[in-house]
Design a protein around this nucleic acid. Structure first.
Lengths: 111, 111
DNA sequence: TAATTATTTAACTAATAAGTTAAATAATCA
DNA sequence: TGATTATTTAACTTATTAGTTAAATAATTA
């Protein structure tokens, strides 16, 4: 679950697309492979999923014949937010976004 | 300034260290090279800086003999926050971090 | 102008990555 | 058991990356 592995995993547009696809719901390897069949073979998807799992960004669970994969949102956001904290401790846009998120969360009580 | 180039740029631990080093203040290519001299040559640093600039993560300005580089925080946070929004629209840790950031910003008025 | 300093470019090497197809493994079902 | 389905592993190819040293470029100064 090192930052190295996370950023390595995120460096591929294919893997980022897989993560985005998983954001809606978890899915089997076959479903994911089918979704990207126009662009990549099933073994290629399988390798991407292994790498994503090694980076700690997805979980994997075998159920019967299929293997289900799901996003580990906390690992992803944790790493990126931590990195942002290191590199831009006082970034304006991040704080802006943060303030918005906090506002949405609380309703308009802080407005 | 594509997300592709940003994630590509961030995939290297060396480049992430350069970014973190630039977070304190901007610096000349020579100063940066000196900082990492134990681990990498000046031409290697120069290539990393070019790549970071191509990704839109740093600016470059020639002043006299030297070339100064500085972090473009907004580009970095913008890309990562946008990506998080796509992949984990309702991530808990991000919101938690967001709430903290908002709190720090406002003082303890919301506590 | 010649020498020095700062940085980048060129040419190269070694390692790694992303994809391929074919074969192996594992679970289910007739 | 044998066939089918789902997924992964193996073996391989091609392209890219990160680094190297040596040479080129550009600005400054003696």
């Amino acid at each position: 679950m090192s930052a190295d592995k996370v950023f390595e995993a995120l460096s591929s547009a294919s893997r980022r697309r897989i993560l985005a696809f998983l954001s809606k719901t978890d899915m089997t390897a076959g479903e994911i492979a089918q979704r990207f069949a126009d662009v990549m073979s099933a073994p290629a998807i399988s390798k991407h999923l292994s790498l994503l799992e090694a980076a700690g960004l997805v979980w994997r669970e075998k159920r019967g014949q299929s293997v289900h994969y799901g996003l580990k949102e906390d690992a992803l956001t944790g790493t990126l937010v931590h990195f942002l904290g290191e590199v831009c401790p006082r970034s304006r846009p991040f704080r802006k976004e943060s303030a918005e998120a906090a506002r949405r969360k609380k309703g308009s009580s802080t407005t």
